[in-house]
Simulated scan of single mutants.
Amino acid sequence: MFDRRPTPETPGPGQESVWDYPRPPRAERMKRHAVLRHAGAVVAESDDLVRVLETSHPPTYYLPRTAFSDGMLAAVERRTFCEWKGIAHYVDISVPGAEPLRSVGWWYPEPDARYPELTDLVAVYVAPFDEIRLDDELVRPQPGGFYGGWVTDEVVGPFKGGPGSQGW
């Protein structure tokens, strides 16, 4: 079933519409501050991020693998394929004293040649974490649980992922 493209929200001052993002996606390096927390621990922290912008999606942020606390990332067998970026490998994140966050992050060990800036960087789903902050703003998950976008006040949608958005 085809789901018609929705009417984009009008961005306000300092905001971006995800409907102005390109397809294929664009990756861009950014100097922003991200902190991922879970079970009372800082899982990762970095000022060196790459954000991926794709039509109808809030940005997905990638952090250097070195930003993750020692011993918290564990490779798992799960793989998915992105038509743009290539084969994604997944990781569990283990915080001492807490249940592991299963397949919560992914990276592209050999990203498509169009995305060299993604090499050795990890993206994560927002929802399983106790808290993710981008420049002190609490990040919200992209709707639906399938995509890894980070929703902040600087982006407007509607966002792909929720009910009725499959055909966007």
Rank of each mutant, 00 (worst) to 15 (best):
V155M: 12
P128Y: 02
A34T: 12
E137P: 06
F159W: 14
V42K: 12
E28C: 12
F81T: 14
C82T: 02
E16S: 14
L73A: 00
H33D: 05
L63Y: 08
I132P: 11
E131D: 01
G97M: 09
P11C: 12
Y21G: 06
G145P: 01
V35H: 05
V18T: 12
R140D: 13
G161V: 08
H38D: 03
L138G: 03
H33T: 09
Q15Y: 03
D136A: 15
M72F: 11
D112W: 02
T10Q: 15
T119Y: 06
P158S: 02
S17G: 11
P8N: 09
R140E: 15
D20E: 12
G71H: 01
T119S: 13
Y108L: 01
D153V: 02
L138I: 15
K160S: 05
D92K: 08
R102P: 02
V156E: 13
R78E: 03
P6L: 10
G40K: 10
A113G: 09
T10Y: 08
T66V: 10
G71T: 01
S17N: 04
P141C: 10
A113S: 15
T60D: 12
G71N: 01
D112S: 15
V155H: 15
W150L: 05
W168I: 06
V139I: 00
P116T: 05
P96K: 12
R79I: 02
V151E: 08
D20V: 04
G145E: 06
P58R: 00
T152S: 04
Y147E: 04
Q166F: 11
L118G: 00
A74I: 01
D130K: 04
G148P: 07
E110L: 10
V151L: 07
S94N: 13
H33I: 04
H38A: 01
Y125K: 04
V18W: 01
E117P: 00
G40L: 07
V18Y: 03
Q166M: 08
V18D: 10
V139C: 01
G12N: 04
D20S: 14
L49G: 07
E16M: 11
D136S: 15
G162C: 06
V76F: 07
V139S: 07
P13L: 07
V35K: 08
S165A: 05
S103W: 06
E45Y: 07
Y108M: 00
L63A: 04
Y147H: 11
G71Q: 06
G157T: 10
A44C: 05
